[in-house]
Simulated assay, not measured.
Amino acid sequence: MSNYLDAHHRQQIHALQRSWTARSDWPTWLLLSATYSAWFALVLHVRELGQLATVALLVPVIVLWMSLQHELLHGHPSVWRWLNKLLGYAPFALWYPYTLYRDSHLLHHRDEALTRPQLDPESRYLDVPQWQRSGAALRGLHWLNKTLCGRLLVGPLLALGGLASGEWARLRRGDLQALGMWLSHGAWVGVLLWFVNSQGLAIASYVLATLLALAVSMVRSYYEHRPAAEPQQRSVLNEAGWPWRWLFLNLNLHLVHHDLPGLPWYYLPRVYAERREEWLARSGQFLVKGYAELFARHGLRPIDSPQHPWH
């Protein structure tokens, strides 16, 4: 537990972690069951719902699934890593193998490296060599990606392009772990697409649903981190409303999560609310009043430069 917490705050958090709710983690088990059930219910009833309605309803389910995968890789709802991997391995979101997401995201939790290109695998910034290698078109896409509306449009393209480039480089180097991971993931994606198509949902429709879900998930990460001298001032406190905080399982309170990565999603708002002013001071007042504020201010205006200020 972070050493900046005072004794009383530590005691409060220990009490939450020792509670029956946290030890059983029944909210996460319940949400997992509900998400699996919702996905299968939609796919099995596509002929009654129609293609467009099914796609529209699948989008929030897939966004929630990606948020649940994040909980799984942080040790919920089971203490067994292999079981959490099994629970989260289904490629409902198609693009990212669970193992790759788990390993890269845990590297992202090195707070001293947050936002730094080449060090933070989830950095949205470019260093000087990357920027110099980019042509005018790619630079334009990166600037567009710094607006929130632009992020919805080109964010998935840039993310998947970066994923393909990095993983292809690993495969060319003969990385056997990467080869096994992608063969397994590809096989399960093939099974999933065969299944949804057999129920009447076009493969193109399902791919569209996953791309839309990826775009929605990028609303959360749009201004989740910023460059700052102190690592704890690089993670946002976004006081989002419903349904955003539900879809993102309270990760909008991102500094709380980074400081207490083992705290389950349903306790993040409580821990934040009890010491709100202290969290704000720790963040250097890195506060956003909700995603509507970001859309209003930066829907069409870049929030900062694609280039990292220190690299």
Score class of each variant (00 low, 15 high):
302 P>R: 02
304 D>W: 12
34 A>V: 12
297 R>A: 13
300 L>S: 13
293 E>C: 05
265 W>E: 02
31 L>D: 10
105 H>K: 11
12 Q>E: 14
267 Y>M: 04
304 D>R: 15
246 W>D: 05
178 A>S: 13
208 L>G: 04
172 R>S: 13
238 N>V: 01
4 Y>F: 14
283 S>F: 05
108 H>A: 13
16 L>T: 01
183 L>Y: 08
259 D>S: 14
136 A>W: 15
217 S>E: 03
308 H>P: 10
12 Q>N: 12
80 W>R: 15
62 I>E: 00
95 W>D: 03
91 P>S: 09
248 F>T: 12
94 L>D: 04
93 A>L: 00
220 R>N: 12
20 W>F: 13
297 R>M: 08
269 P>C: 09
221 S>I: 02
35 T>S: 14
305 S>W: 05
308 H>A: 11
85 K>S: 10
182 W>G: 00
213 A>F: 09
217 S>W: 08
206 Y>D: 06
23 R>D: 01
16 L>P: 02
31 L>P: 03
30 L>Y: 11
198 S>F: 05
149 C>K: 06
288 V>S: 01
231 P>T: 04
24 S>A: 11
203 I>N: 06
15 A>S: 14
290 G>L: 02
62 I>S: 05
46 V>H: 01
128 V>L: 13
185 H>W: 13
3 N>I: 02
105 H>V: 01
270 R>P: 00
227 P>A: 08
215 A>S: 14
24 S>E: 01
182 W>R: 12
143 W>R: 15
90 A>G: 11
50 G>I: 08
181 M>A: 01
236 V>L: 10
74 H>L: 11
194 W>V: 06
281 A>K: 07
300 L>V: 10
88 G>P: 04
146 K>S: 07
15 A>G: 11
174 G>L: 06
79 V>A: 14
195 F>Y: 12
255 L>E: 04
259 D>C: 14
65 W>Q: 10
115 T>K: 09
275 R>N: 09
170 R>G: 00
259 D>R: 11
208 L>V: 15
142 H>W: 11
92 F>Y: 12
221 S>Q: 10
14 H>T: 03
13 I>N: 06
88 G>D: 03
49 L>W: 03
138 L>E: 03
117 P>T: 10
270 R>S: 03
4 Y>N: 08
262 G>Q: 14
250 N>H: 15
61 V>M: 08
183 L>I: 13
67 S>C: 07
75 G>M: 08
289 K>C: 06
206 Y>T: 01
45 H>E: 02
95 W>N: 04
12 Q>I: 00
191 V>W: 09
